[in-house]
């Protein structure tokens, strides 16, 4: 498997890697994937006044999965919830030059954003 420069860069210098306190009401946490499938992503969004102020991720998975989630944290920052909800996996595929067998990594990142937003809304009774 040969990786694009961007995948290697995110893998080597992951952006926003880490965790927020799950219990914080301002934090939405999305965990998607399954260990049996070889990838699990945890994406956390810190949201204030409908705007994503900060994001963190942790990922178990291949380099493309790590890069997809790292990129997702960069992209969501500063966006409103509605804007973040619109991020499409295909944009991640294009940005990272993912080959066809790695498209599921980008799908997972999109799912993780949506799951984190859903968690935030549930916590704050906006669901």
């Amino acid at each position: 498997m040969s990786y694009s420069k961007k995948v290697i860069d995110h893998y080597s210098n992951p952006r926003n890697m880490g965790s927020f306190d799950k219990g914080d009401d301002e934090v939405g946490t999305g965990i998607v994937g399954a260990p049996e499938c070889g990838d699990v992503m945890k994406l956390q969004l810190k949201i204030s006044g409908g705007v994503i102020e900060d994001a963190r991720f942790k990922t178990f998975g291949c380099g493309s999965a790590i890069a997809s989630s790292s990129l997702a944290t960069e992209w969501v920052k500063g966006k409103t919830i509605d804007e973040a909800f619109e991020i499409k996996n295909t944009e991640i595929v294009t940005e990272l030059n993912l080959p066809p067998v790695k498209i599921h990594c980008s799908v997972l990142a999109e799912d993780a954003i949506k799951a984190a937003i859903a968690d935030y809304k549930k916590k704050n009774n906006e669901g």
Binding site: M1, Y3, I8, Y11, G38, D39, F60, G61, C62, G63, A65, I66
Partner: peptide, 11 residues
């Protein structure tokens, strides 16, 4: 445990 083989090889 808890790390994925391909990302490990990448490292």
């Amino acid at each position: 445990a808890y790390v994925e083989g391909e990302s490990l090889m990448m490292g």
